[in-house]
């Protein structure tokens, strides 16, 4: 009777070890896969946000040119209307000289923001784009 009880305990011990090992292995696999999925999801979200922000930046460049041609390069900040109300787009004009100006465009969505710097030069009466620099650091709001 006693020995039978001991055998039963041993059997349960082996089963318990097997269960623990299985549990640890499965947990490790699930953790690795979860991390991979989380990274993928984060990357997809960042890619989508980045694409949307770049669209806004590209759409704002003609507005910056028009603004300079209409009102000159006096320092000012102009909000630009966006298709989605939760997104914001701001032009900041900074004069560098009477014939050069820097326009910083900042696009913001509820989750991220991105900016670009445009340098304009004036030839005769028209302002035209000289250089465009994308600030690649996508900031999460």
């Amino acid at each position: 009777m006693n020995r039978s009880h001991k055998n039963s305990c041993r059997s349960r011990g082996s089963a318990l070890i097997a269960v623990i090992i299985t549990f640890v292995l499965i947990s490790a696999a699930i953790t690795a896969l979860a991390l991979l999925f989380a990274t993928e999801a984060r990357r997809t979200r960042a890619t989508l946000a980045g694409a949307q922000l770049r669209q806004l930046l590209l759409a704002a460049a003609p507005s910056a040119t028009d603004e300079l041609n209409k009102n000159g390069n006096a320092a000012r900040e102009i909000p630009v209307k966006t298709p989605l109300p939760q997104d914001t787009l701001t032009l900041t004009i900074t004069p560098r000289s009477p014939t050069t100006a820097q326009v910083t465009i900042i696009a913001k969505t509820p989750t991220a923001s991105l900016s670009q710097s445009l340098t304009y030069t004036k030839t005769a009466t028209t302002w035209s784009l000289h250089t465009a620099t994308l600030n690649t650091q996508l900031a999460s709001n």
């Binding site: 299985t22 499965i26 696999a29 991390l35």
Partner: peptide
């Protein structure tokens, strides 16, 4: 268990 171990190792390394 060996199969599971191998699978886990591969999954972790691949990830």
């Amino acid at each position: 268990l060996v199969q599971l171990f191998s699978l886990t190792t591969h999954a972790t390394r691949d990830a």
